[in-house]
């Protein structure tokens, strides 16, 4: 099959670009640890309130781990627990969240913390809160009539 010379040039350029994109996200994911949230742990969604760590939502200092804090969130229609939390600036935090009922979103607006919460699964994301400010947490997956009222707040303080 004949392919025009210019089309070959274009396809080589295009495919190379795609390869560069894939290499950048691939190296970032597999060598620098920037994978999208993909926690494989499960939980009984009907017993979230009595299962650690979700029996105590909020920020907890931890020792001997790669991160300094664990920030536990429990989502249910149509609220997050805690409804507001303060995080010291520069803290390396593992955000751990799950849902008690339907699918919810967990998006800290203006950051890369953006994960789906699905009943039966735990979602996790590790990041360093290196910019001070007030960050809105919104539910970004439709969960019912009160979906747009579902929010929380993280204050990153000096």
């Amino acid at each position: 099959m004949h392919i025009h010379k210019f089309e070959k040039i274009w396809l080589i350029f295009g495919i190379t670009t795609l390869l560069v994109f894939l290499t950048v996200v691939g190296v970032s994911a597999f060598y620098m640890g920037n994978q999208p949230p993909s926690c494989l742990a499960t939980i009984n969604p009907e017993k979230v309130d009595t299962t650690a760590p979700f029996d105590e939502p909020g920020l907890k200092k931890v020792e001997g781990k790669e991160w300094d804090y664990e920030l536990i969130f429990v989502a249910s229609a149509f609220a997050y627990n805690p409804g507001q939390v303060e995080v010291p600036k520069g803290a390396k935090v593992k955000v751990i969240a799950t849902t008690k009922d339907v699918i919810h979103g967990f998006e800290v607006a203006g950051t890369n913390i953006n994960m789906m919460l699905e009943p039966g699964y735990i979602s996790e994301f590790v990041t360093t809160f290196d910019k001070a400010g007030e960050y809105l947490i919104v539910c970004n997956e439709y969960c019912g009539v009160g979906h747009h009222m579902m929010s929380s707040k993280i204050e990153v303080v000096e």
């Binding site: 998006e107 919104v138 970004n140 009222m149 929010s151």
Partner: peptide, 18 residues
């Protein structure tokens, strides 16, 4: 800027970002 899809109008309690 972070505005969610599939959501009715909301000020999210007067949040600055919203």
């Amino acid at each position: 800027l972070g505005a969610p899809r599939r959501s009715s109008f909301s000020t999210y309690g007067g949040s600055e970002q919203a």
